[in-house]
């Protein structure tokens, strides 16, 4: 599971109010090497929740991210490259994600997170 995905994940069990952000307890992390994609980082930046990303990175042992986004973004290529690295290259291979509201745990095995819910846990909808 990439931190990019984690930044968008929330727990959608019925009892959770926001279910966001999920707390990562990693047991294995793998850092891959992928090609830097300038356009994608700039595009996805606008939608990333920065404090959540910083928190997630520190839970994975990366403390190099600044607490706020530097103002001169477009000129700072080294910052964008570092951001791309954190978003796409850092993979949580195994561990546990925990819902901040309900404490419901979602396990990660082989990089795949288990979000299977029982029918009783799902949100109610009117039909």
């Amino acid at each position: 599971m990439k931190l990019l995905t984690h930044n968008h994940l929330r727990s959608n069990v019925r009892t959770a109010t926001t279910g966001y952000p999920l707390i990562i307890t990693p047991t294995e992390i793998r850092v891959t090497d992928t090609e830097y994609n300038d356009k994608f980082v700039k595009h996805v930046m606008q939608n990333v929740n920065w404090p959540v990303l910083v928190q997630a990175a520190s839970q994975c042992g990366i403390t190099t991210l600044p607490p706020t986004i530097p103002p001169n973004l477009t000129s700072d290529t080294s910052f964008l490259q570092a951001l791309h690295h954190v978003l796409v290259n850092v993979n949580v291979v195994s561990g546990v994600l925990k819902c901040p509201d309900t404490g419901r745990e979602f396990s990660i095995r082989d990089g795949i997170c288990d979000f299977m819910l029982e029918e009783e846990e799902c949100e109610n909808v009117k039909i």
Partner: peptide
């Protein structure tokens, strides 16, 4: 992610 589409979406 391992997920059943009938249970909503976890995002």
């Amino acid at each position: 992610a391992h997920h059943d589409m009938g249970t909503g979406l976890p995002f």
